Computed example of a mutant assay.
Amino acid sequence: MRLGREAAWTLAYGACRGAGAGEAIARSLADAVVAAEWVGRSSVGLSHLRDYLVGFTSGRIATDVEPELDDPALAIIRSDAKGGIAQLGFDRAFEELCNRAGRYGLAAFAQRNSYTTGELGSYVRRLAERGLVALAASNGPALMAAALGSEAVYCTNPLAFAAPVAGEPPLVIDQASSATAFVNVRQAAEKGEAIPEGWAIDAQGQPTTDAREAVKGALLAFGGARGGNIALMVEVLAAGISGANWSLDAPRFMTGAKSPGAGLFVLALKPDLLEPDFADRLRQQLERLSGKGVHIPGRRRAEDTIEVPKAVIEALERHGR
Rank of each mutant, 00 (worst) to 15 (best):
G14I: 09
L29F: 01
D31Q: 07
V39C: 01
R41D: 06
S43Q: 11
S47C: 15
S47D: 14
G55K: 09
S58Q: 13
A62R: 04
E66W: 09
P72K: 14
L74V: 12
D91K: 07
A93K: 07
E95I: 09
C98P: 05
R103I: 10
Y104H: 05
Y104R: 08
G105V: 15
Q111D: 06
T117G: 01
L120W: 06
G131C: 08
V133Y: 01
G149V: 12
V153S: 00
L159A: 12
A160K: 03
L171E: 06
V172P: 00
I173D: 02
A176D: 07
S178L: 05
A181G: 13
V185L: 02
V185I: 14
I201A: 02
I201G: 02
R212A: 11
K216H: 05
A221I: 08
A225D: 09
V234E: 04
A239M: 10
I241L: 13
P251N: 12
M254H: 11
K258R: 15
A262W: 08
K270D: 10
P276I: 15
R283D: 11
L286C: 09
E287C: 11
E287P: 06
I296Y: 05
I296H: 06
G298P: 07
G298Q: 07
A302Q: 13
D304F: 12
P309I: 14
P309G: 07
K310M: 15
V312H: 06
E317I: 14
R321Y: 04
